[in-house]
Every structure is written in C-alpha cells, then in structure tokens.
Design a protein around this nucleic acid. Structure first.
Lengths: 142, 142
DNA sequence: TCGTATATTGATAATCATTTTCAAAAAGGC
DNA sequence: GCCTTTTTGAAAATGATTATCAATATACGA
C-alpha cells in the first residue's frame, strides 16, 4: 500500500518534470507512516525532530504537491487549519468529528454516495468530489 | 419570515443581556435582505455604501452573534473565507458548489439525513449538525 | 431627566495559517 | 564537470480574522 503510494507520487513527479529531492522523500515517508488527518504544522514538528534542516515552507509546498498528485486530500474541519489525509484510490470516506475532544472517526456509506449522485444529476451537476462531515459528541463526551 | 428572524435575534439578545444598537439593526436588516452565502467582506462593502461609519470589526462581531443566536450559519467552501447563510429553523440544506464559476445550489434530501443519523448512531455519536458539500461543474460549466 | 455602570463601537494593532520572494544550493542532462 | 532549471530555507508578505482600548452609546435606577 505504502509502496504503491510512493510509486504513484513518483509517477506524478516525473510526469510533471519535478526533480527528486531528499526533502520530498523524507516528507513522503513521514506522511505515509503517519496517522490520518494531520496538520501541516503537526507533520513539520514531527519531521523537525529527526531533520531539523527542513523548513516549514517546504512542508507546506510538498503537502500541496501530494494533494495535487492524488495521494493525499486536503480536509478542513472548521478549526482554521488544513489537514491532509491519505487518499485511497477509488474509495471515499467521510467523517464524524467530536467537537469536544476532537476525535475523528471515518465511515463509508454507499447508499449516501448513491443519493448524492442522484441529487447532483437532478441539478445537472457533474460531481468531482464531495465532503460530508457530521459534528457532535462522541461516546465518551456525550 | 424576516420579521420572525428579527424577533428571534432580539430574543437572543435580550436573553444574553446585549444592548440594542443602531449598528446591529442595520447589519441585521442588511443581512436578512441579502442573498445567501455572503462573505463578511461582501456584507461590509455593501453596508459601507449607505453607512460609511460602520467598522468591519463590528460586522465580523455581529455576524458571529447571528451565528450564535441561530439565525445564521457559518459555512466554508474551502476558498479561505467564511460565509454566512440564513438559517431556517428546523430545516437543513446542503450545497452543490461549482468549482469553475462559483455557483452554489442548495438542496435537501431527507433520506440522506436519515442515513446520516443511522451512521452516527452506529458509532455512538450524538450529532449536533453536519455539512455536506458536492463539488463539481454546473450545467453551464461542464 | 440625570448619573452611572456596563456594553459597544471603530480604528488599529496583533495573530494565525499560509504563500511569496529570493539568493544559495542541489539535480539532471549533456 | 558545466550549465540550466528546480528546489530549498529563511524571512518577509499576505489575507482573513480577532484582540485591544479609548471614546461613545445604552439601559436603568434614583
């Protein structure tokens, strides 16, 4: 899984004529080995421990590249920070967000996806992607 | 409809011990008579024509109050700006967003809502609100 | 109506996340 | 190795939003 993501990004990079650099490799490894939904800042801090020489501008730039390449997706939960999550080809998942403790649970629901397509078709829209987030309290917090 | 929103905000204000001010009245009228999904800046610019003496800090503060009072809701479409839309008691609508021309279409779908509740229940979540946005191209742009 | 306590305003400064700038360093051909 | 182009890191810039604070307005009791 991780290997194919690496491959996918390398394909994207060479197709775009990007040069391969140490920094991007490090950031890619770190991102792929990381839990989901992390902030640019979180990844930057995590990296800095082992690689104090990587600047945060590079982390920002590289995560944007990951999103562009399709191996990551930007998500925003309304707390002002952009998060990045791994993107698994072909599948899509949505989020339950606990507004008390910040816990994030992922879920998938094909019926909802199908209904979304129907709604879009009714309005003549061609859907590229979507975002569904349910906000509330998790088991522990309610 | 507009009158009841005004009433609703006044109830909220008095319950919170807020004083009634000219500025808030003007902003409330302007907001209620406005199209949906407007940016704080858009409302500020619109106001400034007739009321050059209202500061944008007040507009920001007041829109946050509207959201708190329940007559408005904050929405974010990922373009970096917070938008406010009218909130109709008891009903909830979601959005189709055209990523080319920026068109926004609202829709409601009870079945999706029901499925969301089911998903939340399965994970032990108590849902307070949710957000569903479908991004793609509208009829004209596709 | 007057005074007083409290909330609100507007201008400005501050903040926070993100982006841009730019000179120096690194990569990829040839 | 040379030369062109991309990338990097540090710092400055940006853009949206929030906090600060003195001046002003409001509510309410005397």
């Amino acid at each position: 899984m991780i290997i194919s993501k690496k491959q996918a990004f390398q394909d994207f990079a060479s197709a775009k004529g990007l040069k391969s650099t140490k920094q991007r490799d490090i950031i890619l490894d770190s991102f792929l080995s990381c839990h989901q939904h992390l902030t640019t800042e979180e990844l930057y801090l995590k990296l800095k421990t082992d690689n104090p020489n990587i600047g945060f501008a590079t982390v920002y730039r590289t995560l944007k590249l990951f999103a562009e390449s399709g191996i990551a997706r930007e998500i925003q939960f309304g707390d002002g920070q952009t998060r990045y999550e791994h993107m698994h080809a072909g599948e899509h998942h949505d989020h339950l967000v606990c507004t008390r403790c910040g816990a994030i649970v992922e879920f998938e629901n094909e019926t909802i996806e199908k209904l979304q397509s129907e709604v879009a078709a009714q309005h003549g829209f061609t859907i590229k992607n979507h975002k569904l987030e349910l906000y509330g309290y998790c088991v522990k917090c309610s």
